[in-house]
């Protein structure tokens, strides 16, 4: 009896700690007052201002575009890595392959961002491309560090995967490629979707790497938000937070839905 009380208390306090700041943020987004911390009354004023703020809307569109594109590329390449690591035995310099596909997970973003920026500058000095940084360079950088996250999900899924199904299909006359497209990929599809959602969210949320690799006409949403709240508070950002948190939490729930399927 006593131990179950401790248990409930710990879980309650833990969840309170995790959700309290999010609730505070949402609560203050309905504050009428321009001074964020002084409550003046319930209002949707800042939501209205948010939807009329062209800078934020434009940044939002850029971010979504980059996130969708880089998640798609990262998913294709990440599935290839996950598949190679589990199913293909002859990978040249396999340790190097593992190094390349897992280091982005542990490398501090700041170092990754700096290396990408210096790479693009050097590349421009050598071949004259990319002449300026912008959406393309952010896209390339995001693909690079999202690949690893997708690869890990796919690798875990394929390790659990019952190989007999693939072998049965081969015995029945399917060739290698056909097994992949007709059997393996459809079965791991939920994990592929989960990987895409994860990559999409990571790209959408990234500030550090995007700050290094951005250029004219490529202010992503985190960059704009950061410039607004670095030194103070902004009621518009409060409204944005509430919407974005809600949207991202929905994406997260979808991720769980798809990723949980593979446990059965």
């Amino acid at each position: 009896m006593k131990s179950s009380l401790i248990k409930s208390t710990v879980i309650f306090l833990g969840l309170f700690f995790l959700y309290f700041p999010i609730l505070v943020l949402i609560f203050y987004s309905f504050n009428e007052n321009k001074r964020v911390m002084v409550w003046k009354g319930f209002s949707l004023r800042w939501y209205n201002e948010l939807f009329n703020n062209e800078q934020i809307i434009e940044a939002f569109i850029i971010s979504i575009k980059i996130a969708a594109l880089s998640a798609t590329f990262a998913t294709i390449l990440g599935v290839m890595i996950g598949y190679s690591l589990v199913r293909i035995r002859t990978i040249p310099f396999k340790s190097f392959y593992i190094f390349l596909s897992s280091t982005p997970l542990v490398l501090p973003e700041l170092i990754l961002g700096l290396s990408m920026l210096l790479f693009f500058i050097s590349l421009n000095n050598v071949i004259g491309f990319p002449s300026s940084r912008g959406q393309l360079t952010i896209f390339i950088s995001h693909v690079t560090f999202c690949i690893a996250f997708v690869a890990i999900i796919i690798q875990a899924r394929l390790t659990d995967f019952n190989k007999n199904i693939e072998e049965a299909a081969m015995d029945l006359g399917y060739n290698y490629t056909k097994v992949l497209y007709k059997i393996t990929l459809p079965i791991i599809l939920p994990s592929i979707i989960a990987g895409w959602l994860l990559a999409f969210t990571i790209s959408l949320d990234d500030l550090v790497v995007a700050s290094f690799t951005t250029g004219p006409g490529a202010n992503t949403l985190p960059i704009v938000v950061f410039s607004k709240v670095r030194l103070g508070l902004s009621p518009e950002v409060n409204a944005l937070s509430a919407i974005l948190m809600f949207a991202l939490i929905i994406i997260g729930l979808f991720y769980f839905y798809f990723n949980k399927k593979f446990k059965h």
């Binding site: 833990g14 995790l18 700041p21 964020v36 508070l233 991202l248 939490i249 729930l253």
Partner: peptide, 24 residues
Amino acid sequence: ILLVLVVIPFWSSFLLRVYAWKII
């Protein structure tokens, strides 16, 4: 359910969760 509840905040924006502490 608890596991999903614990991880869900991690899915919401990192920058905005830090910003929330600025308000608090």
